[in-house]
Design a binder for these strands. Sequence first.
DNA 1: CTACTACTTTACGTTAACGTCAACTTAAAG
DNA 2: CTTTAAGTTGACGTTAACGTAAAGTAGTAG
Lengths: 137, 137
Amino acid sequence: MSANIKESLYTATELATSLGVTSRTLRFYETKHLIQPKRVGNRRVYNYKDRARMQLILRGKRIGFPLDDIKEFLDLYDSDADRTPQIQLLVNKVENRIKQLTEQQQDIETTLDELREIHSIASETLKNKPKIRWSST
Amino acid sequence: MSANIKESLYTATELATSLGVTSRTLRFYETKHLIQPKRVGNRRVYNYKDRARMQLILRGKRIGFPLDDIKEFLDLYDSDADRTPQIQLLVNKVENRIKQLTEQQQDIETTLDELREIHSIASETLKNKPKIRWSST
DNA sequence: CTACTACTTTACGTTAACGTCAACTTAAAG
DNA sequence: CTTTAAGTTGACGTTAACGTAAAGTAGTAG
């Protein structure tokens, strides 16, 4: 039976397609040290950890963070708090990030409230208006 | 007594400064039809509605939306649902936006959970470690 | 072996969102 | 009146995040 590890390897095209990005994106993120794929010959191979890391990256992008911020978050995420000599720095950075995201949540909540109000008014208008039959020309 | 309206007018520099942006940003948003300031002579003047609109724009940016999306949202926000012939279109667009923001909220909540876990582990490590006194040099 | 496919690297292009700067115009101060 | 300050417009520069394409390399099929 083939080694389990073989079944979780992806080519660049496979990984890109499954995540809805391009191979160019993967190469670009590699130059930014966001991901570090291995090589078989001169071809990149990605494992499940690379894939998981990419998923975190894409979530960060959906939230609206620049790639440098995402890298910082991933480094926090991966850091071994038992060993880093700057645990206090880690705590501070994490607290800043939490604050930032909480503020973003509040902005979103405010915007959602407004959108729901617009939706309610517009729907009410649709319900109350008699259906107009337009004569075709 | 001077007209009330006079007191709510801003120059470009005044508005920019109060919002934490540059005059260049205001001019740029004008070319994108996000705002429409009036002119006194050849100088732009902004009223409280322009200011309020700018605040919505900046909130949209904080959430991570591109300016074109923000403009679309503002147009929804300003639209008079009683008159627009495409009320159903409005409803659809609003629903899509609500969906998008709700998904973004979920991404943020997931990220916050992870950050809080990191914070907890790191804080615990700090608490349990003996405080080290470094000799100064 | 050759031809084809699928990768690679390198490098320039594109888009979004302004920043920066030169040159000009207008309002206000002296 | 002149000088200064504070706007204006036009245009190029910068950064971030890739897209596109040319040229090269390696693996695979025939």
